[in-house]
Nucleic acid binder design. Structure first.
Lengths: 214, 214
DNA sequence: ACTATTGTTGAACGAATGTTCAACAGTATA
DNA sequence: TATACTGTTGAACATTCGTTCAACAATAGT
């Protein structure tokens, strides 16, 4: 009842304690939301703290450094994207050609064709040249991505006959095409539709097993 | 001779006056060097001023705002890249197929496969979501780029027979592939060689006029 | 109910940011 | 040589940044 008392034992707690893991996850999500909302440039510790409804000090307490938090966020997002695509490929079952189609369709699904995701990715690419930590995460995750594509293409070529393009190179081509189209669509969505992106990517795969190419 | 006199009429001038155009160009080049050296994040007005050997105030005097300077730099770089590619295409003369090969080779030339250029480009892409000015420059320059590709493909298909892929879509595919490979090479140059990039792009063009595709 | 633990706070700090503007100084003109 | 013009300077300003750390408070163990 006394006016100097802000919150006595009878009122609600001023904050809820969480385990380190819970809080780290929450901070990571808040950081991603901030990068999305205001770009990596304006994504400050204070902004993340506000977004996570937490004080400034807590971030450095849990992650030590801002860079460590961003690197953790990168790993988290990259894992999510690849896992989601792999899940769709696994769900479709079928032969290699059908799996590749699922892979392509997953790449052009709304989850991935997202300006927010693009902004996050740009931020990570930018940080890569500065931070060894981020560069390592990229190398590791991108290798995994390309390995999946290469595996599917090798499987396809075993069935439908060899191509002049070895699986490694063909995989680089397909992932380059997918990434390039993804990039361009995110920069300027009016240029072409996701369906057209799928048509183009399917054409590449078809060309891979066509007699004229190999 | 007096110690309060810094530089009297007898000594060298403390700075050289330049015309507005000269100075604007010099500041723009300094800004690009800064983006390359330390990334857009650390590329401050003070850093640009130091690089251009000029005082902080001069930048805002000539460009009004940092954003205006960066946008001007974007336009400058984009013009350079496209002009250089078009020059190579024009030099080779020949038919559409040969011009497309020149276009592809130019895209994978060391001038373009450059970590510095990539860093500059990433910076511009990042700023695009924030700045209307930068977004406008992108739309304009990228449209010009794609128009060149589309023109060459249309010319090729008139000679060698129509494809199921209309020139517009085929051009989007080729520029997507070129950009995607460029992106991936810049992020991780060990993955594949520029020559392999050329092989992949040529394969796409070949597939465009192959009977199986159209 | 008391204590120990530790997740959490937020004021404070030093460094850096973009921008402003009154004063300065080179340059061409008269 | 004096004058007007304007390119140029750099201190100053108001913010914002990432990080630190002593104090605080929610919770679990007793």
């Amino acid at each position: 009842m006394t006016d100097h008392a802000r919150t006595e034992s009878s009122s609600a707690p001023r904050y809820r304690r969480q385990t380190a893991d819970e809080r780290r996850e929450a901070l990571l999500q808040a950081a991603l939301r901030c990068i999305v909302m205001m770009g990596i440039e304006q994504c400050s510790i204070r902004a993340i703290a506000r977004e996570a409804d937490v004080s400034v000090g807590l971030i450095n307490h849990h992650y030590g450094t801002k860079e460590a938090l961003i690197a953790a966020a990168y790993r988290h997002v990259a894992d999510d994207v690849l896992a989601q695509i792999e899940r769709r490929v696994a769900d479709v079952g079928g032969n290699a050609r059908e799996k590749l189609s699922a892979f392509i369709r997953a790449s052009f699904s709304p989850v991935n064709l997202d300006a927010d995701l693009f902004r996050v990715w740009l931020a990570f690419w930018t940080l890569q040249s500065t931070s060894k930590e981020i560069a390592a995460v990229h190398k590791e995750r991108y290798g995994a991505y390309r390995a999946v594509v290469e595996g599917l293409i090798a499987e396809l070529q075993e069935r439908e006959g060899k191509s002049r393009l070895e699986p490694r190179l063909a995989a680089i081509g397909l992932s380059g095409l997918l990434d390039g189209l993804w990039l361009e669509w995110c920069l300027e969505p009016e240029t072409f539709s996701p369906e057209e992106g799928i048509v183009l990517s399917e054409a590449w795969v078809d060309a891979l097993v066509a007699p004229s190419m190999g």
